[in-house]
């Protein structure tokens, strides 16, 4: 017993101050929200060829970047001859609407994530059933991190629960493999209404690196209606928690 108390004392208090205090420092080399600068589209040619998922493309005579497909690998940045594509260390990226994930030159402000129904019903208690539907387990790992004492997501009343029957909604990761289609459907049906669905990570939003493979469904939107999109490969825990808090209206949207 004495041993336990002594160890507890040595380990100190470790829960971060955010969102009341500053957010945890992100590494200097972190690839957060990308930024597009206006420029001749010819100069994007090499960047387009380097992009593994087609997240970067050209429409209406200018570049655009789909956060929902992006793996944040920065191959585009390295290949781009005139610096039109760059990456900030901004973590805020989750969005309520799928189309809001598409970034165009000069468009730097994060999209809204607030969900009226969720803000009304779940702002003090949001129970989520996580469904892992393919992918590589990195998204799951960074969801699990939110339950550790550094992040302590429970302080906001947000929790992962064991049964879909106890849940207010699903948090889905993975591109939804063929072998998970039925299980995802059944889990969704088992959640009592009104319910919400969160797609976390490039796989769940667009299929990620597996987009186009016959073995999966290019994300979960084909199977269930999605209320919040959290980009990243995998999304940083701060990106996830920020998205969840804005979703339920616990964090002010930035102008």
């Amino acid at each position: 017993m004495f041993d336990i108390v002594r160890t507890r004392w040595r380990q100190k208090y470790q829960t971060m101050a955010w969102p009341d205090g500053p957010p945890p420092a992100l590494p200097a080399r972190f690839a957060g929200r990308p930024r597009l600068a206006a420029g001749p589209v010819e100069n994007l040619r090499d960047a387009l060829a380097a992009c593994p998922t087609g997240a970067l493309d050209v429409a209406e005579g200018q570049g655009r970047l789909d956060l929902g497909k992006c793996l944040f690998c920065r191959a585009c940045q390295q290949a781009c001859s005139d610096g039109q594509v760059s990456f900030t260390t901004e973590h805020q990226m989750a969005a309520r609407q799928r189309q809001d994930l598409v970034i165009r030159p000069g468009q730097d402000s994060p999209a809204p994530a607030r969900h009226e129904l969720a803000a009304r019903l779940f702002s003090r208690s949001l129970k989520l059933r996580q469904v892992s539907a393919g992918g590589c387990n990195a998204c799951e790992a960074d969801c699990n991190v939110l339950s550790t004492l550094a992040w302590d997501m429970g302080r906001f009343g947000i929790q992962f629960v064991a049964s879909p029957r106890h849940a207010d909604g699903l948090l889905i990761t993975g591109p939804v493999t063929r072998n998970m289609q039925l299980a995802l459907r059944k889990t969704y049906d088992a959640v009592p209404g009104p319910k919400i669905v969160i797609a976390s990570g490039a796989c769940a939003i667009s299929g990620g690196p597996y987009a186009g493979h016959a073995e999966q469904s290019d994300g979960c939107a084909a199977a269930v209606p999605v209320d919040l999109f959290i980009p990243g490969c995998p999304p940083h825990p701060l990106t996830i928690l920020d998205g969840l808090l804005r979703f339920v209206g616990r964090l002010e949207e930035r102008e």
Partner: peptide, 17 residues
């Protein structure tokens, strides 16, 4: 349940994926 066809997709590579 996690099968997403990676070995199949690797054949013919290497490529940008």
């Amino acid at each position: 349940y996690q099968h997403r066809g990676v070995e199949r997709a690797l054949r013919g590579g290497p490529d940008r994926r």
